[in-house]
Write a protein that binds this DNA or RNA. Structure first.
Lengths: 123, 123
DNA sequence: GCCACCTGTCAGCCTTCTCTGACAGGTACG
DNA sequence: CGTACCTGTCAGAGAAGGCTGACAGGTGGC
């Protein structure tokens, strides 16, 4: 085995990372958080987007393992969720993509032997 | 700031690459083409998808610079478009993402006479 | 001519993502 | 108690991407 520590992600994993980063807003969120860790409301004000929307984007980034959120309580007792960027590292080459693709759980995979929906013919 | 040869893509460029690779079908297309270069119709049969759809995916991958298509004429005179994977290399870290995000052309940016990089645009 | 391949493009459906506004809860300060 | 912050979630509108079928053109062989 070649000594390549940086990358050996599963297909699903890499897919989540790529689709998470494949969005201008999310890239800017990562950039903003890299400069300084921040909490949701302040970050929303900083990059000018609605809180619910930012919340969704952060969730997506966290699901991909690119950022982590910790709910902290300030001196005044107010709870704020601070987000930090993970020191992730993905090497993107034809090789790594192909290897990841090999371990992909089929998107359109009805999953055999998992309880048939016998009423699909009703229509 | 040269120092890291592998990566210094523009924001738009990286965004195209990530959104292109952030799709299970496209990852498998890259994997299939890495094993063996192929032409559209045969590739469509190989991975089981419609030709028009595959055509669209290949276009997207080519637009991102991940594959290249060359229209070749076989011995029998039939034209077939063969696709090859590009030896691309992208290093994905918080740093590279942040640098790319800095050079993003705003999605909702009409901005004809772009002169100011001011971000006080926020209301 | 007809058939079997190849290429490309188009309109239209359908699913997914993106985004907004309003709601729920919590604590602290005047 | 009302206000100002913070947190989270929901339904629903709108935009974008995925997907299908049918069409147009090209070549060579029966």
């Amino acid at each position: 085995m070649p000594g390549v520590p940086p990358s050996a992600p599963t297909g699903d994993d890499l897919l989540k990372v790529l689709s998470a980063l494949g969005n201008p807003h999310r890239m800017r969120i990562v950039a903003a958080l890299l400069e300084r860790r921040n909490y949701v409301s302040e970050l929303a004000r900083l990059i000018g987007m609605g809180r619910p929307l930012l919340h969704m984007h952060l969730q997506r980034l966290e699901a991909a393992g690119l950022v982590v959120g910790t709910l902290e309580v300030g001196e005044d007792g107010k709870s704020m969720k601070y987000y930090d960027v993970t020191p992730f590292l993905y090497e993107l080459t034809p090789r790594t993509v192909a290897e990841a693709a090999a371990t992909l759980t089929r998107t359109t995979d009805p999953d055999p032997a998992a309880g048939r929906t016998a009423k699909e013919e009703a229509k």
